[in-house]
Simulated scan of single mutants.
Amino acid sequence: MAQPQPKQPDSGPRHVAIIMDGNGRWATQRGRPRLFGHQAGARRVREIVEACPDLGVDYLTVFAFSTENWKRTQSEVAGLMNLFRRYITREAKSLKANDVCVRFIGDRVRLDRKLVSMMDELEALTANCRSVNLTIAINYGGRDEVARATKRLARDVASGKLDPEAVDEETLPKYLDTCVLPDPDLVIRTSGEARISNFLLWQSAYSEYEFIDTLWPDFTAEEFRSVVGDFGTRDRRFGAVTA
């Protein structure tokens, strides 16, 4: 990975989240199995991470596997899990060397122990890195996250650690998987689909969205720079009225 470059002025998004869609269609268009597209998509992640420091993007969150993706064929799911393990093995040293802090969000209970152990090790290895904060969502769903967070909150109320009258909209985020992250400023979805697919439902309440036709394996750093650059032209009022 390239060494981080000096950051540009703070005119762009600090946190970008990406729904990486279109791997399967990309492979099908080339007469290849869907897993071939997922492999190409995994390689694309590296290029986008490399582009972040120069664009002033401190946080990048990517949607790798949703709670609904278990509905896919057993062979595709198994292939994806193997791909995650290979990605961690192949990229760990490079991520550390380039000062990329890696976190995983999602429910780990259903994941195999070997993969969870590798995820834990990569998080520990890169815990002190500061250039880019890369968050990978695996077995993640926005509704599932809120449900799990609500259970933790309810347990604290039941045990007396939390006063129910003190619960407000600032309370629940402390129980979410993303509790240490700022909300995303920009959410990008590739492949031409215009839906959010249960991704960061709470966190993206005031995010800007960009739906683009490019399939994820074709989403280059140049296109990423263009989308991030366009963010600066948006008028973010957060419910207020511009004078």
Rank of each mutant, 00 (worst) to 15 (best):
A2D: 15
A2Y: 13
K7L: 09
Q8V: 15
Q8R: 13
S11I: 13
G12I: 04
G12Y: 08
V16W: 04
A17M: 02
I19V: 05
I19W: 04
M20R: 02
G24M: 08
A27H: 01
A27N: 01
A27W: 06
T28N: 14
G31T: 03
R32K: 13
R32D: 10
R34H: 04
R34I: 05
F36I: 00
A40P: 03
G41W: 07
R44T: 07
R46E: 13
E47Q: 08
E47F: 09
I48V: 06
V49T: 02
P53H: 01
D58C: 08
D58F: 11
T61L: 04
V62H: 05
F63S: 00
F65K: 03
F65G: 00
S66D: 06
N69Y: 05
K71L: 14
T73W: 02
A78W: 10
G79W: 01
L80C: 04
M81R: 05
N82Q: 12
F84K: 00
A92H: 08
L95C: 06
L95H: 06
K96I: 09
A97R: 09
A97H: 09
A97C: 10
N98T: 06
V109R: 06
V109A: 15
R110M: 14
R110Q: 15
K114Y: 10
L115N: 04
L115D: 08
S117G: 15
M118Y: 11
D120F: 10
L122Q: 03
E123S: 08
A124V: 07
L125S: 02
C129V: 09
C129E: 12
V132L: 05
N133H: 15
L134M: 02
T135M: 05
I136P: 01
G141I: 01
D144W: 09
E145F: 07
E145N: 05
V146T: 12
A147Y: 11
A147M: 14
R148I: 05
L153V: 02
R155D: 13
V157R: 00
A158D: 07
D163W: 10
E165D: 14
D168E: 06
E169F: 11
T171E: 06
L176D: 07
D177W: 09
T178V: 03
V180S: 12
L181Q: 01
L181W: 01
P182T: 02
P182I: 03
D183C: 12
D183T: 08
D183L: 10
L186F: 05
R189N: 07
G192P: 01
G192M: 03
L201N: 10
A205T: 10
E208Q: 14
Y209V: 09
E210M: 14
F211Y: 06
I212M: 06
D213C: 10
T214Q: 01
L215V: 04
L215N: 02
T220G: 05
E223V: 06
R225G: 15
V227D: 03
V228Y: 00
D235F: 12
D235M: 15
R236A: 14
R237I: 11
R237K: 09
R237Y: 12
R237G: 11
V241R: 09
T242K: 15
T242M: 13
T242Q: 15
A243I: 11
